[in-house]
Simulated scan of single mutants.
Amino acid sequence: MTHTYKITGMTCGSCKASVEKSLSSIDNVTNVEVNLEKGEAEVTMSSHVATETLKEALPEKYTLSEKKEKNVFVSSSMSAMPMGEEKSKLQQLKPLLLIIFYIASASTLLHYKNWSWSAFMLDFMGLFYIVFSFFKMLDLKGFPESFKMYDPLAKKVPAYGWVYPFIETALGLMFLMRFEVEIALIVTLVVLGITTVGVTKTLLDKKSIRCACLGTALKLPMTEATFIENAIMIVMAVLTLTNIL
């Protein structure tokens, strides 16, 4: 018999290997196949193994739950996402929304006495890069694995995933210090443009993966919010570059 379970907490290939090894060590489990992108594990058993037994075998970093199968006899109007699940999705995005709110507030307070949209956008982009690169720096080993799951360039050039947090840090400092702003804006358009292509494809394919925008420290799902945050930065970069030129 084969059962499918949802696994949360996996961010990279080593996580996948760890889950497979832990579940395979359980008596009566004959085969384990983990799909990192879907966050699922197919467990084949010679005889039934309780879900609690599977949970206990995994390291604390991971959580396991039974995958609920869709009832094909339920009408489309009844199959909409329950309010509880929607709230859970918003709760997962809460750290991202709070960070963007604080960055926007700080950028506003810096210029409220002598308002300038150009200065506001430069400081917003600078703080955005500094804060987001900080979270990526917390797990420099895990970030590249998560990042290459949706960024086209990181998939083809693994080294790009390793240097990306440092690129963000450099761009953040350039914006805040007003150093070679034109170059920073052009690099921003290129870097975020590439990432946005990957994010858009992931959303259109309806893949369930983790967003690496805040590294692996926070468990953020890949949602439309990731596309929106990239779009905001791209629009700001275009507007600022237009004003400069």
Results as ranks from 00 to 15, higher is better:
Val32Cys: 09
Thr188Trp: 01
Phe124Cys: 07
Ala217Arg: 05
Lys148Ile: 00
Asn114His: 14
Glu145Lys: 09
Met125Val: 03
Val74Arg: 12
Ala212Trp: 04
Lys67Asn: 05
Leu203Arg: 08
Pro59Gln: 09
Lys94Cys: 03
Pro165Thr: 01
Leu97Thr: 14
Met1Lys: 12
Thr216Ser: 07
Glu20Lys: 13
Met125Thr: 05
Ser18Met: 02
Val235Ile: 15
Leu204Cys: 02
Val19Gln: 02
Ala159Ser: 10
Lys6Val: 13
Gly126Ala: 06
Val72Gly: 00
Lys67Thr: 13
Leu204Pro: 02
Thr8Ile: 10
Ile100Cys: 06
Thr216His: 02
Val72Phe: 08
Leu185Gly: 07
Leu127Ser: 03
Ser25Arg: 13
Ala41Leu: 07
Leu93Phe: 10
Ala41Ser: 14
Ser105Trp: 07
Met125Lys: 09
Ser133Leu: 00
Leu220Thr: 04
Ile186His: 04
Glu224Gln: 08
Pro144Ile: 01
Asp123Ile: 00
Asn35Cys: 06
Glu42Arg: 12
Ile167Lys: 07
Tyr102Glu: 01
Glu85Tyr: 06
Asp123Leu: 00
Thr53Ala: 11
Met78Lys: 15
Leu173Met: 12
Pro59Tyr: 07
Thr226Leu: 13
Cys15Pro: 10
Asp205Trp: 01
Thr30Asp: 10
Leu97Glu: 09
Thr53His: 02
Phe120Lys: 11
Lys67Ser: 08
Ala57Met: 05
Asp151Met: 03
Val238Asp: 01
Leu214Cys: 07
Met177Arg: 08
